[in-house]
Design a protein around this nucleic acid. Structure first.
Lengths: 166, 166
DNA sequence: GGGCAAGAATTGCATTATGCAATGGTGATG
DNA sequence: CATCACCATTGCATAATGCAATTCTTGCCC
């Protein structure tokens, strides 16, 4: 060994801890955002709306796959969202065995409001970060993300920070 | 106003985006960890075990509060965990109207294995970060966390990165 | 073209997760 | 000791989930 960083001399552990702690904070922000804006909707339902918002109209199977749930679960969640007026089923003229699900205007509006709120919450935190720390943050976070993006995980619902656990 | 950083000159937005992206990654890591180790347990159940693991034996009400659920939900989840052999109810000699819930050895073991796995996943990512970016990461993440920790959010289950959504 | 396998959505069934509203027991305070 | 607050639990209703049919629809092969 030459200068530092033995197999795990503490630096890696320190960063890991820092990451976990920061993660905890983010989790709280997301919860707060949905609760503050989305009122009576449930999280799984909102997650489905987010998927539609970020990927556009989707077949039911694709939707289920994105959310990591069984198609039957997706079907029934869509049922509820349709009833609530946030999503709609569209028949596909090319293939009668498929349908697409898309947001209604109300649904899109809901997603936008929550996203907006969440973004503003994070911005508020970022604005309290001392200027001299900011430049390092972007570089560091990008380095972290790139290091972890070997196989890009399932894409979209995560964009809203919404998943079943974390 | 003196030198720079207008209301939102882009720097804040850039950091916000970086944070959101990194958050997405973390979410994936947590999901993978539980799925890989915890097998047949559900997420809400595991979340309860994590709370017990990080805070020790807890009254039912405290547990429910930590998890952000109704006490009745906690009661029934504990029922299932007890049946599965991962948790136990202990009568409190000081106050017969309270009970405490604690991990069994099997429960503690399960939590340890998942935590270990998750930590190793994050470490693996951290180790792929170029050395010159690492120091910046710790400082930056700490700055971020401190900036957000105005009112420290509900504590413990987040420690394992486990929540219902994110 | 007829028939058959694969794909897509849905429905049936069972279990878990949740919240709200009692209920029954226990402690504390006056 | 009488009442009020606190604690766990249970009853009831709804949502979320997965697995296993079921029903159409498409594609493909003979």
């Amino acid at each position: 060994m030459s200068e530092e960083i033995p197999p795990n001399g503490g630096e890696v552990d320190a960063i890991t801890e820092a990451v976990l702690t920061a993660s905890r904070l983010l989790v709280g922000v997301s919860a707060k955002s949905v609760a503050a804006v989305a009122g009576p909707i449930t999280l799984p339902q909102f997650r489905l709306l987010v998927a539609l918002g970020s990927r556009g109209p989707l077949k039911l199977v694709s939707l289920a796959e994105m959310l990591g749930v069984n198609p039957s679960t997706a079907t029934r969640t869509v049922d509820r969202l349709v009833t609530a007026g946030w999503a709609q089923r569209n028949s596909n003229p090319d293939s009668r065995r498929e349908i697409t699900v898309s947001l209604t205007d109300a649904g899109r509006d809901l997603v936008d409001r929550v996203t907006e709120y969440r973004r503003s919450e994070i911005s508020a935190i970022v604005e309290r970060i001392p200027h001299e720390d900011r430049a390092g943050l972007v570089r560091a976070l990008q380095a972290f993300t790139e290091a972890g993006e070997e196989p890009p995980p399932r894409a979209s619902p995560y964009d809203a920070g919404l998943t079943e656990w974390q």
